[in-house]
Each structure stands twice: as structure tokens, then as C-alpha cells.
Design a protein around this nucleic acid. Structure first.
Lengths: 230, 230
DNA sequence: TATGTATATATGTTCTACATATTAAAGGTA
DNA sequence: TACCTTTAATATGTAGAACATATATACATA
């Protein structure tokens, strides 16, 4: 017990390196200066001089911002600021890692919460054409294969987000789905409640928003139950 | 119109640099090798030789993984694999950037969807003690100042996520809130519907899940309406 | 056993030099 | 003048060597 308390109170020292500091300073610089996409940053040598470090260190710092998608480098032009893609770094990290169980559960839950919260936007934006497309997707549900089912899930729920009119959200859920699939497949439990995709479409067509929320909850019920045993 | 289509079809060539390739190769390496947190990677010189590049380039690549939180470096020990914090890179990028309007709207909406989807988890996990805490927070609502209101928002909704029992989600919404505040404050519109925090607590105490979902929708109504004019 | 000391080693940092792509200027032609 | 070609300048990309520094390991000491 004592050691645990220690570990919590005295977190690692981790003295920052020059590159860490440069990274921070560059971030500040980007924030302070109101760069427009395409604007050029000072050149590496100038930054190096201003910060009092070698060009190498500056390059390491810049390299990190590049990874975040905040800058791009053009020969002769120098480094230019670009509007970063919010999800790209998230995507990079979500893929390769082995998450701990807690985070895994959190992410699993996150997706459920998103699905459950979608109703309002759907009922605000849906059109007859949307429903028709959704209906078609739901009809092609026959395939049984595992990889196929995932593809189908992606198609159906992806279309839902599309109807909601939120591209970021759609991409987000596409990223989440493999994780979702990983969790659902490691146990041999039903992956669908008593309400299936076709039923959901039917509700979306003729039912109220409240009906839809209830339907979605039924549809996701096995997953919610799965949370108990995590 | 033509230029836009062009820009979409022919995305920049951006010939990858050695550092880009090293970054990729290292990612693959991390994925393939099932590293446990704390395991050491090969040392820089070995990587440099294996990849046929200078140590400098390897360091740039490693530096990027460091930014993602995938590795940490220890003197003499070498670089070690660490379980990355999923949200940290997202956090770094969310803060400094000036988002384009579309993304801003998407994020704004994302938060609304999350709040709306929270009901199920809340009703699964809430305890009397939780409600008591929430009640207290809602009572301290008197402050009018702008910064104070944000703090209060954070406290109340933060507690909701806490009750839901999802730390990732809670941190996520904390990151989202400043953006939310930015949007709400640039127009002079009401930020609260006819249902306030105290009302929500009351529903949570005695009402059904459906009541709560309706209440939350009412509470967020001004924000949903705001979406129309985005 | 516990503590202090020494050494080897991997990362951190700096410098120098050269390669390469691309912009911008110079020059030539109609 | 306007347009095309050539040239030169320049900022990033890459390599390699050298030294600084922290620290894990082994060893010595009490």
C-alpha cells in the first residue's frame, strides 16, 4: 500500500530534453502568432539561433509538429503552417497499441454513448432519400461471415452518422469500430439485440424519436450487458 | 469549382523523407513486435544501421513516436515502449489550432451527442451519494461571471461523466468544453434551456430515464438550435 | 546487508559538410 | 512587351564525427 501511494505522489521526474522544450516553445509560437494555413515559419537556422540550440534539435522539434500535422515542409520555401487534421494523430495511435482493459472499456462505452446520442440529429436531418439508402443497406444483411458482418456494421452505422451530417463523427466511429469488433469477438455472445438494422430503419421511417432511442437501446443491449463483465 | 476538384483528386505529392519512412517502419516494428510497457527498443545506432540511414534521421523518427507517447527514452537504458495515453496527442492538437468552421461545428455537435447519449450509463450506475454531490454542485450555480459559469458547467457535466464511470469520456469532454465555450460566447444567445442543472438533478433523482433524456434535450436546446445557423 | 564508488554505455547535443529540390532572378527570343 | 529557358541562390534533407551527460551494472567498502 505504501509503495502505491508513493508512486502516485511522486511521479517520474523525466527531465525534459532540449527537443521537448523546443517543441513546447514552437507550440507557443504557433498559438501566439496567428498563422494562416500556408504561412511560412522562420527557417531552421533562425529558430536554432533564437532558441540557442543546434539546428538538429530544432529539427527534432519541428519533426514532432509535423507528426501532429501542424506543419509541412517545402524545400526552399521553409516550413509552412497547415490546418491539422484533428483525427489523424488520434488515428495513428489508436491503431497500433495494445490498450489496457480500462481504456478498452472506456472506448467501447464511448461508442455506445455516441450511438445512443445520435437520435436527435438523425430526426433533425433525415430525408426520404437517406432512409431509402439505409433500407437497402439493411436488406443486404444476409451475409454471415465475420469480416462481412463488420463491413455491414460499418456501412449501416456509418450511413447513420452520414445522415446526422457530421463527417468528423463518422470518421471517429470508423476508427472506433475495429476496437469494438475486437471486444465483441473475443467472447461468443450475441452481437445484436432483438431489434436489428431493418427494424431500426422501420422506426426511423414511421416511428417517433423516442421510439428510435428505445430501439437503438434494444439493438445495442447485448453490448451494454457486456459492460457488466468487463 | 475546377480547382477544388483538382485539389481533392490530386493531393500533394510530398515525397516522403527518410524520417517519414523511418517513422512508418518503426510503427510497423512496434505493431509486429508485441512489446510490453517497459520493454526496450534496439538502440539508435542499431536502428540506423538496420535501416541504412544516419543516426540523425532515426532520432527524428523516434522523436515523433515520442510525441505520440508511444516511447520514452532513458539514458543508458535506451528507448522503451510505453502504453500511450490515447487522448494526449488529441489534446495537444485540439488546443492551439484554429479550426475551420465545419470542424468546429462537428466538434460542437459531438459534445451534444455525447451528452444526449449519456442517460443509459447514468441510470445504470448512479448512486444516492452521486446525486447528493451533483445537487450540491447545482446549488452553487448563483455566480454570473463568464469564467465562473464555464467552471460550473465543467463541474456539473464533469460529475455526470464521472457517474457514468468513464474516465476517458470525462477527460474528453473536458478537452471539448473550451471549444464549446468559444462557440457559445461569440454570439449573445441564451446558453441554457428551460431546464437547468437543478432540474436535471431532480429528474435524475425521481424521474425515469426517458424523462432524463427529454430533460437533457431541453437543457441543450439552445445549442441544438445554434446548429441551424452554423 | 546496505551503502558508496567506478566504469561502461546509450542517449543528448553540437558542428561541419554536402545533396537536392524549388523559387526567384537573369537572360534570351519572338 | 510578353513569354520561355537557363541559371543561381537558398532552405530543407542527410550524413558523420565528436563530445557531454546521465545511469545501470559491477565492484568495493562499512
Amino acid at each position: 500500500m505504501k509503495t502505491i501511494a508513493l508512486k502516485k505522489d511522486l511521479k517520474k521526474i523525466n527531465s525534459p530534453t532540449m527537443a521537448d522544450i523546443v517543441e513546447l516553445k514552437l507550440m507557443e509560437f504557433l498559438k501566439k502568432t496567428a498563422f494562416q494555413p500556408g504561412d511560412a515559419l522562420p527557417k531552421e537556422m533562425e529558430l536554432a539561433e533564437a532558441l540557442g540550440v543546434s539546428r538538429n534539435v530544432v529539427r527534432e522539434g519541428l519533426s514532432r509538429l509535423k507528426m501532429l500535422g501542424l506543419i509541412e515542409s517545402r524545400k526552399r520555401r521553409g516550413m509552412v503552417f497547415v490546418r491539422p487534421d484533428i483525427l489523424s494523430s488520434f488515428e495513428k495511435i489508436l491503431d497500433p497499441i495494445i490498450m489496457d482493459e480500462t481504456t478498452l472499456k472506456d472506448i467501447f462505452e464511448l461508442r455506445l454513448v455516441l450511438e445512443m446520442g445520435l437520435g436527435e440529429l438523425l430526426y433533425r436531418n433525415k430525408t426520404d432519400k437517406d432512409i431509402a439508402v439505409l433500407e437497402k443497406i439493411a436488406k443486404d444483411q444476409d451475409g454471415i461471415g465475420n469480416t462481412f458482418r463488420i463491413k455491414h456494421e460499418l456501412a449501416f452505422h456509418g450511413k447513420l452518422y452520414e445522415i446526422a451530417g457530421n463527417e468528423t463523427l463518422k470518421r471517429f466511429q470508423i476508427m472506433l469500430l475495429p476496437i469494438f469488433a475486437y471486444v465483441t469477438e473475443r467472447e461468443d455472445k450475441p452481437t445484436q439485440g432483438t431489434v436489428n438494422h431493418a427494424d431500426l430503419v422501420e422506426i426511423l421511417k414511421h416511428g417517433t424519436k423516442e421510439d428510435f432511442n428505445k430501439g437503438m437501446l434494444e439493438h445495442l443491449k447485448p453490448h451494454f450487458d457486456r459492460l457488466e463483465n468487463f
